[in-house]
Amino acid sequence: MKSIETTASGASGLPPRGARAGQIEFTACGPRGTLTREGLQTSLFVYGGAIAVRLLVKVWARLQARPDVAPTTGPLLLAGAVLAAGFVAFLFWQLFRRKDYWAAFFAGALAFASFFRFDAAPLAAGTPLEKPLILLPLLPAGIAIAAFLAMVRSADELQQRILYQALAFGFVVTFVATLVFAVLEDLGFPHVSAVWWWITLVVSWGVGLAASARRYR
């Protein structure tokens, strides 16, 4: 009788034959169930493209206040930003087409992080681009949300159970933390920015994912 394939934590210590080289197996993600090396590379390219957009737009915004700059510099910088944004959009389209939702979510989160404290909008005050620049960081956030929902919809029954258990854990931890810190603030502790609530939710969700997935190994 041929040897039976070992499980992911099997005694042989060898990776299962089903796991292809270059794959990082995550606990709960779409039809692939893995974050491929290719998906990770694409995510990093997305991050680089988002950084390029941020830098080009920021330089353009700063140059608006300088009269000594050549008139073609501004449009060139904006054209570069639009090209970089188009490249990022193409990469996202590729990830969704491949149904690589974990990579798309990761890329969206990275792109959103790259716009953290994006201050080009105030510099562009009075220009037609002021409002679009304010809304720009919402684009990668929206893509990350869409990727997450697509991941949940395409997950199989066990993956969905793991996801929901992890979300429930994250919700409870964040709820308790919110109450505790609200009481501490009333007692004179320093105010905690709302960003930390999302960080708490994401981190506790990650812990819940790991713990929940471990139960089924």
């Binding site: 992911a8 299962p16 089903g18 197996e25 692939r32 029954e157 066990l158 089924y216 190994r217």
Partner: peptide
């Protein structure tokens, strides 16, 4: 389904 699900089924988890 995912390979993870097959593994969990086989181990009875």
């Amino acid at each position: 389904v995912s390979r993870q699900t097959v593994n969990a089924l086989e181990t009875g988890k």
